[in-house]
C-alpha cells in the first residue's frame, strides 16, 4: 500500500521532468531536467531493490549516481565553450 504511493509520486516526478525536457526554450533547461530525472531514478532503483528483497541490486544505483555527474560536466563545459 505504502509502496504504491511511493511509486506513484516518483512516476509523477519523472513525467514532470519529461515535460520540461520537451518544452524548455534553451538547452540549459533541458540539461537541468536530465540531471533531475537521474537523481529521481536513483531513488526509484533503491526502492525497487527494497521491494524485490535482493540487496545486491544496489550497485546499479551507485553506478548511476556517480556517472551522471560526468555527463552533466561534459554538457556544461560545452555550453561555456571550454571543452
Amino acid at each position: 500500500m505504502i509502496v504504491s504511493i511511493f511509486l506513484l509520486v516518483i512516476g509523477a516526478a519523472i513525467v514532470l521532468c519529461l515535460i520540461r525536457l520537451i518544452k524548455g526554450p534553451t538547452a540549459t533547461d533541458r540539461a537541468v531536467a536530465l540531471d533531475t530525472v537521474t537523481t529521481v531514478t536513483t531513488a526509484l532503483l533503491v526502492i525497487l531493490a527494497l521491494v524485490f528483497k535482493r540487496y545486491i541490486y544496489l550497485d546499479v544505483a551507485l553506478v548511476y549516481a556517480v556517472l551522471m555527474f560526468i555527463g552533466s560536466v561534459a554538457i556544461a563545459r560545452f555550453l561555456e565553450k571550454g571543452i
Binding site: 546499479v60 553506478v63 556517472l67 560526468i70 555527463g71 561534459a74 554538457i75 560545452f78 571543452i83
Partner: peptide
C-alpha cells in the same frame, strides 16, 4: 531482474555516449 545488463546500459549511456557526441 537483469542487473548486469542494467549496469552496462547505465555506464555506457550516461557518461560515455553523451560525452563523445558532445565532442
Amino acid at each position: 531482474q537483469a542487473p548486469d545488463v542494467a549496469m552496462a546500459e547505465a555506464s555506457i549511456g550516461a557518461a560515455l555516449t553523451t560525452a563523445i557526441f558532445v565532442i
